[in-house]
């Protein structure tokens, strides 16, 4: 589906006024851009220009006061986010790749039963496992810090990463695996020399998907970490809830919190979309 979504259709509306469609499309574009506009224009105003009455105005001169102030408050939390998200994305991608390979190419008895059971884990509301998760993390002494949060993202990321890789490996021709077996390669050899080098598109999809969802996660973070280890989402929400920090700093902070995943989206949007479709089983 994701490939068909990208191919150009042949048909057109047969009537001339299809150009009128640009009117609703542009209006909707404005609707989608409003929050981005506010975050950016507010962030780029000098402190003396900050006034609720003029919040919709463009900045008179470009200043970075708000971004600097927001960054000073949020930098440690952004660092927490990066140092949690990167290992989480890499580890869960590798696990997904191995699982996907086994489930797609070496069907053992029970594989067809195990796959849906793993997939269901992608959709559960985490409230249903939250109390045991916290108790468990306390028992193994991983409660409060970033390693516990990484562990949670790795494990609860297994379903989506496994699904993406399994679908990808299942789409590769059987002959690839058979030929490598004829040449005497074992299971690991086939995986390492034949399939892994072909998997980089799926790795990109899964890495950016895991990066984005771990970066954007709030629930695990708020429950599993103490304030020193807070990632950006929790810190930002805390900032927004406080009466002390002004709205302009909140806007600039929101933009900073959105920048990493927005950049991923802008430069790797095609792969992001594939992850999105895989997440609804439409990949």
């Amino acid at each position: 589906m994701s490939t068909t979504a990208l191919s150009k259709p042949l048909r057109r509306l047969p009537f001339q006024w299809r150009h009128l469609l640009y009117l609703p499309l542009i209006l909707m574009s404005i609707f989608y851009l409003i929050p981005l506009y506010l975050m950016l224009t507010t962030g780029l105003k000098g402190f003396e220009e900050i006034n609720l009455q003029t919040m919709w105005d463009l900045p008179k001169s470009i200043r970075f006061d708000n971004f600097i102030a927001a960054f000073q408050t949020l930098a440690p939390y952004m660092w927490n986010s990066f140092s949690m998200v990167i290992p989480a994305a890499i580890i869960s991608s590798f696990l997904g790749s191995i699982n996907g390979f086994v489930l797609a190419k070496w069907k053992f008895r029970g594989a067809d039963l195990i796959f849906p059971l793993i997939l269901f884990g992608m959709f559960i509301p985490y409230q249903s496992i939250l109390i045991p998760l916290v108790e468990f993390m306390k028992t193994i002494n991983m409660y409060g810090g970033l390693p516990g949060l990484v562990l949670a993202h790795v494990i609860y990321g297994i379903p989506i990463t496994t699904l993406t890789f399994r679908n990808y490996y299942a789409s590769l021709p059987k002959e690839l695996v058979e030929a490598s077996r004829m040449d005497g390669a074992g299971l690991l050899g086939t995986y390492w020399y034949i399939l892994l080098p072909l998997s980089w598109p799926s790795f990109v999809v899964v890495l950016i998907w895991q990066f984005t969802s771990a970066w954007n996660d709030f629930l695990f973070a708020v429950v599993l970490t103490n304030p020193q280890a807070w990632p950006i989402t929790v810190a930002l929400n805390n900032m927004a809830g406080s009466q002390i920090i002004a709205w302009n700093i909140q806007m600039a902070g929101s933009f900073l919190a959105a920048v990493p995943t927005l950049l991923v989206y802008i430069f790797l949007g095609r792969y992001f979309l594939r992850g999105l479709m895989a997440g609804s089983l439409k990949g």
Binding site: P35, N216, F218, N237, A257, L273
Partner: peptide
Amino acid sequence: SLFLFPMAISFIVTGVV
């Protein structure tokens, strides 16, 4: 791409704005 970009942002950022 424009209509899809909010999917890349967290509910927290959306909520604060």
